[in-house]
Write a protein that binds this DNA or RNA. Structure first.
Length: 465
RNA sequence: GUCCCCAUCGUCUAGAGGCCUAGGACACCUCCCUUUCACGGAGGCGACCGGGGUUCGAAUCCCCGUGGGGACGCCA
C-alpha cells in the first residue's frame, strides 16, 4: 500500500512553528516512502475560517518548500459527500438525531462539573432496544450524534507514543452534524481520511483524545483504520506554552527576522526527532533518514540560539547569488540601494562568515552603500589628536597606491612603523571613519572593497574637523 | 474532578538490560588564532525526578508517588 499522509490545518490563523513541524514530518514521511502528501483545509468552522488564513498557511508552506502532491482540498466543498455519509449512518443506526437544546446541554455540563464529574452527553436521545425515546419537540432542528460503543475500549499503537487504550465508557456520543446540518470536525476528518486513503495520520498531541472517537466512527463506516502518530507540542523559548497571546508567530516571521528557510527546516526537523548525532543535514538527507521511531514523545522547548547557530551555518553555505538577492531586498527595506561597486557578492563574501542573521548581515554591510554615522564616543575614543597626524600621512600615501588589500595593508604598515605605533592604533580610527563602528573584518580588505575614492573621501570628511 | 500523555546536562537530544566512568549539539567558561569584533580550533563545566520492585546486572522493564502537559464544545 502506498503511503499517503496529510496536513490538515484549520484556516483560522497563520502557519505557526508547531504546524510547520507537523507539516514537515508528514511531508518527509511521504517522501521517504515514495508516497503522497496531501493538503486539506479544514474550514468547517465558518465563523473563524478566512481566505487570508488559507493564503497565509500556503505561503508558509511554500516558503519552506513543503510541496503537496494533492490538494488543497476544502472541506466546505465536500458537503455533499459528508451529507451522504451522514444519511448512511442514520439509516444504519450508527448515528441518531438529538433534540437536546444548547441550553439544556449547558445546564447538564454545569451540573456535572459541579458534581466533579466528567462533562458528557447523557444519552437522552440515544436509541436503544426497548427504550422509549422522548416526544420529539416541535420546531427544533436536531443535531446528529454518533452512537459510540459503550463497552469495551479502543486500542491503537501510536507510532510515537506506543500503545494507547481508552475505554469506550469514557466517551459520549459526540455531535457529528450541527443543527444547521453542517458536519463537525471529528466527522469530516474521519470521512476525509477514509476517502482520501490516508495511511498515516501525523498530527499534534492535542488530538490524542479525538483518536478513539475517530477510530470508532471509522469502524462504524467499515473503513480501514490508518496508523496514528501524535507529535508532542513545541514550547516557547521560555518553556511556556505557545499561544496567540504568548510567543506564537508565523513561520514567515522567521523569514522577516532574518532566518534562512534551510536553517528553520533543519532546526524544526531536529526538534523532537533525531538521527544519532546528526545535527546539520539538508532536506534530502532528512527525507532519507526520517522515521517515526525516533520522534521524542515529550514536549520540546524552542531554542532560538540553536536556530541562530544553524542560520550562521546556512548563511556560510548559501548560494552567493541567492544570498545577494535576499540581502539586496533587505537593504532596500532600509532604503539603501545597492550600487554596482562594490559588488554585493564580494561584500558578502567578506561578511557572510561572521554573522548568524540576514538582517544583521544587511545592517553590517549597509555602510558600503550609504554613509555611516559614527557615534561621538567612538570618534572621541579612537580618533585622538595623537593619531590624526598619522591618519593625515596615511591618507596622503593611500592616494597614490594601487588599490588592493595587500598594497593598503603594506601602506598602513609603513606608516605604523615610521611613527612607531601599534597597528590597531590606526586600524580602529579607520574603522570608525569608514564604517561608523570599531568592529569590522580586516580593515585593509574593507578599504579595498570600499574603493579608493570613497575611502579617501570618508577619511577627509572626518579629518576636516 | 475524570480520562489520556510526558519525565536524561540550562536547552535540543543519543540511549531498545551489560558497549554508560551516560555520548553529541546549542549556550556558558578557559585557552589558542588575531588588526578590533566575529568566524574558526582545542579544552572545560554540566543530567538519568523520587521511592520501591524484577534481574547476576536498570537511564533502559514493572508498580507507586511527585511534577509538567493535554482533552473533556452544535471549535478544530
Amino acid at each position: 500500500m502506498t503511503v499517503r499522509t496529510r496536513f490538515a490545518p484549520s484556516p483560522t490563523g497563520f502557519l505557526h512553528i508547531g504546524g510547520a513541524r507537523t507539516a514537515l514530518f508528514s511531508w518527509a514521511y511521504a517522501k521517504k516512502h515514495g508516497g503522497q502528501f496531501i493538503l486539506r483545509i479544514e474550514d468547517t468552522d465558518v465563523e473563524r475560517s478566512t481566505p487570508a488564513a488559507v493564503q497565509a498557511i500556503m505561503d508558509g508552506m511554500h516558503w519552506l518548500g513543503l510541496d503537496y502532491d494533492e490538494g488543497p482540498f476544502y472541506q466546505m466543498q465536500r458537503m455533499d459527500t459528508y451529507k451522504k455519509v451522514l444519511q448512511t449512518m442514520l439509516d444504519k443506526g450508527t448515528a441518531y438525531h438529538c433534540y437536546s437544546s444548547k441550553e439544556e446541554l449547558e445546564a447538564l455540563r454545569e451540573a456535572q462539573t459541579l458534581a466533579a464529574a466528567k462533562p458528557r452527553y447523557d444519552g437522552k436521545w440515544r436509541p436503544e432496544a426497548g427504550k422509549t425515546l422522548p416526544i420529539v419537540p416541535a420546531g427544533i432542528s436536531p443535531v446528529i450524534r454518533f452512537k459510540n460503543p459503550q463497552t469495551g475500549s479502543v486500542v491503537w499503537d501510536d507510532l510515537v507514543k506506543g500503545r494507547i487504550e481508552i475505554a469506550n465508557a469514557e466517551m459520549d456520543d459526540l455531535i457529528i452534524a450541527r443543527a444547521d446540518g453542517t458536519p463537525t470536525y471529528n466527522f469530516c476528518v474521519v470521512v476525509d481520511d477514509y476517502e482520501m486513503g490516508i495511511t498515516q495520520v501525523i498530527r499534534g498531541d492535542d488530538h490524542v483524545n479525538n483518536t478513539p472517537r475517530q477510530i470508532n466512527m471509522l469502524n462504524a463506516l467499515g473503513a480501514t483504520v490508518p496508523q496514528y502518530a501524535h507529535l508532542s507540542m513545541i514550547l516557547g523559548d521560555d518553556g511556556q506554552k505557545l499561544s496567540k497571546r504568548h510567543g506564537a508567530v508565523s513561520v514567515m516571521q522567521y523569514h522577516e527576522d532574518g532566518y534562512l528557510k534551510e536553517a528553520v527546516l533543519n532546526y524544526l526537523a531536529r526538534l523532537g526527532w533525531s538521527h544519532g548525532d546528526a545535527e546539520i543535514f539538508n532536506m534530502q538527507q532528512f527525507c532519507d533518514w526520517f522515521d517515526l521511531d525516533h520522534i521524542t514523545p515529550s514536549a520540546a522547548q524552542f531554542n532560538t540560539e540553536k536556530l541562530s547557530w544553524l542560520n550562521a551555518h546556512y548563511i556560510k553555505e548559501a548560494n552567493i547569488d541567492e544570498l545577494s538577492s535576499d540581502i539586496a531586498t533587505r537593504l532596500a527595506a532600509l532604503n539603501i540601494e545597492v550600487k554596482l561597486q562594490p559588488k554585493l557578492q564580494d561584500v558578502l563574501g567578506l561578511y557572510r562568515e561572521r554573522v548568524n542573521n540576514l538582517n544583521q548581515l544587511a545592517n553590517d554591510i549597509a555602510y558600503f552603500y550609504a554613509l555611516p554615522q559614527a557615534s561621538a564616543s567612538d570618534i572621541e575614543k579612537h580618533i585622538t589628536p595623537e593619531v590624526k597626524p598619522a591618519l593625515h600621512e596615511l591618507a596622503g600615501q593611500l592616494a597614490t597606491i594601487e588599490w588592493t588589500a595587500e598594497a593598503i595593508h603594506h601602506e598602513i604598515n609603513q606608516v605604523v612603523t615610521r611613527l612607531q605605533l601599534k597597528f590597531p592604533k590606526i586600524a580602529m580610527p579607520l574603522r570608525v571613519m569608514l564604517i561608523g563602528i570599531a568592529q569590522s573584518p580586516s580593515i585593509d580588505q574593507v578599504m579595498a572593497l570600499l574603493g579608493q575614492k570613497e575611502t579617501l573621501a570618508r577619511i577627509q570628511t572626518v579629518l576636516k574637523y
